[in-house]
Nucleic acid binder design. Structure first.
Lengths: 353, 353
DNA sequence: GTATGATACTAAACCGGTTTTGTAACAGAG
DNA sequence: CTCTGTTACAAAACCGGTTTAGTATCATAC
């Protein structure tokens, strides 16, 4: 009854003030700007703090200073998908290295109760980096209402949407052209899906932009995009394997599969190998991203190199500029891509003079 | 001169109270517990909030409620190393999926100004997961002083150090025994390094524990660990390649390299392939972790499977238990490992009856 | 007609820091 | 000796919410 719970409580600045005989102000100065008080006061205060085990509460400090010292990375899908994708991992790495440089932490924000909007409302961050964000989404208005600076990677460049992109349409065009130049006409495309924004995708979404590039290359050789089967895969090895198997069940096996994503392409190769097929002898495949694994797997993957880390870095640098200037300037960064021709697409024209 | 900066300010709960004609309390209830006020009041307040573009400040809420809704993952080294390591990525994934489940964000905490201790002092989180933490480190006392719950993965199990581990000594013993059973005697070991705790490593650090396992297996066949060259590598593909090249310059090429880390083992294979060597014909190698890439690379890597995601998940679940019970109970979780024999270690005994 | 309780609200305290404002003591300038 | 400026500190306001304690109104019970 009379027994008191021994729930220890952290000492606060007030306790240190009382115990050391100085004021809260003095304690605050001792930690933040010792030049404002006498040497004696400072040492007495710090000693008291040490003795009582006082560490200033980071949350209270941040609240008072109206900052978080953290930027958020809004995950476009459940964590297990987002972080499973090596491309996203590289982007994360790029963002992270900039955070490190500025002494910020990096907050990974998964959808809250399956609601990305809710997650953004509650995010305790100074700015946000998103992937694949498009204008008109609820999230955008929440970020604007919160006056939260944001940058989107792989989203739709727009005046109210600072962005970092490669030229996806051009890159896809080049990739498809390479495949077509090798004589492939019986194709299959694997598009991107699985993210939370997919259902609201507009014409200018990332998969759509890449599809436009494919379409252009196809039309140049007289193939109608409508006649090419299109699968949609989540960006994971597992789903890639699944799509690979699915393709094996086609009435007519394509001579080449073009995937918008290396990890899915690799999944295909793995499942085809398991089924006894040899790549590119029996079937060719091209990917997108040039993740590290693309040059490890046999055969080495023909793909488009896009500097994922660089994307993350640039987005983060732009975001920090906004945070420090406390204004929402609009930036659009486009960085170069490179077509990487390796061994996964067979040349059907060779030997035919 | 007279021009006022048009720095928009977010409306606060006070503004909504004034504008709607109700009190702060009423506004708070409208958002958090509408049953406490009348329907009319609630709708008027929410309407006013909508009109003025009011979203409750997450920081102020969290501060008031003494919570962060975020747990921290303390990166043992610079971000570019930590997140480059597929093993750590899997751990992260495991932690993240639990955060998602509880509606928490996951804060990646890089060393602050190269000081992990400073980073922990300032971390705005409800709990911490660390990797390779050992008793007696400064960080531990900071976490205890802050009354911050914590769990360590791959650290030294200890009464003041809740932990998640496999039996590293046993796993290493088994791995080394496999190599020795295949007749290898001319070995090289690649140990773990590069993390911020390395210099303070005690006898019970992770590399030391694994070394003990190696030592035991070696002694059983009469080999002294002292006679085995040991390299230390950061857990990255790049450093793995470097160590691979270094080994090629040995006076006598080992018949088998045993790495404490798959990513480093893969780096070795890549550099050996580039040098024209064939694995395991010319040189064998065994790894540790069984990352996805271990079964992609040729030859498939002989390694120890440890459930990295599961480690992250268990650590996070334990941490959430502590957070919700608001007490620092000590837990020690050990999970099983599996030896995975694949094709990267040549059987030197076959053909010799 | 008064006590009782529920309803719907407000005022004020609180979370733990930082920062502005104020003041006493003292030094140096004129 | 007075004026001014500086030093070293304290008191109080502030950040933007939540929560406790309190009050007025009204319905119901007795």
């Amino acid at each position: 009854m009379a027994e008191q719970t021994t729930k220890r409580k952290r000492p606060t600045i007030k306790d240190i003030a009382r115990e050391s005989g100085y004021s809260k102000t003095a304690v605050s100065f001792a930690f933040n700007d010792p030049s404002r008080i006498s040497k004696k006061a400072c040492s007495q205060i710090l000693e008291t703090a040490e003795r009582l085990g006082y560490i200033p509460d980071p949350m209270a400090r941040n609240f008072s200073l109206r900052r978080h010292l953290s930027i958020g990375f809004l995950l476009p899908q459940e964590i297990r998908y987002s972080l499973q994708n090596p491309y996203a991992q590289q982007v994360l790495l790029g963002i992270g290295s900039v955070c490190e440089k500025y002494g910020y932490t990096l907050t990974l924000i998964p959808p809250l109760n399956e609601s990305v909007t809710e997650a953004v409302r509650n995010a305790a961050v100074d700015g946000l980096i998103t992937m694949g964000m498009q204008v008109g989404m609820d999230i955008v208005s929440v970020m604007k209402t919160r006056l939260l600076p944001y940058v989107t990677i792989d989203g739709t460049p727009n005046e109210e949407m600072p962005s970092v992109n490669i030229n996806d349409e051009m890159a896809s065009y080049e990739l498809m052209k390479t495949v077509l130049d090798f004589g492939h006409r019986n194709l299959c495309i694997i598009s991107l899906g699985g993210d939370i924004f997919a259902e609201k995708a507009t014409k200018m979404s990332l998969p759509q932009r890449r599809m436009e590039g494919f379409k252009k290359a196809l039309s140049e050789v007289g193939v109608d995009l409508q006649d090419v089967p299109v699968l949609v895969s989540e960006p994971s090895l597992a789903d890639g394997k699944l799509k690979g198997k699915e393709i094996l069940n086609f009435n007519e096996l394509p001579t080449c599969v073009v995937s918008m994503n290396d990890i899915v392409a690799i999944g295909c190769i793995v499942s085809w190998n398991e089924a006894g097929l040899s790549v590119p002898k029996d079937i060719s495949i091209a990917g997108f991203d040039n993740i590290d694994e693309a040059s490890c797997i046999m055969p080495h993957l023909t793909t488009v190199e896009q500097p994922a880390q660089e994307k993350g870095r640039l987005a983060a640098e732009a975001l920090f500029k906004m945070i420090h200037k406390e204004t929402l300037q609009s930036v659009h960064i486009q960085i170069p891509h490179t077509l990487i021709q390796r061994d996964s697409v067979k040349d059907l024209t060779s030997g035919q003079p």
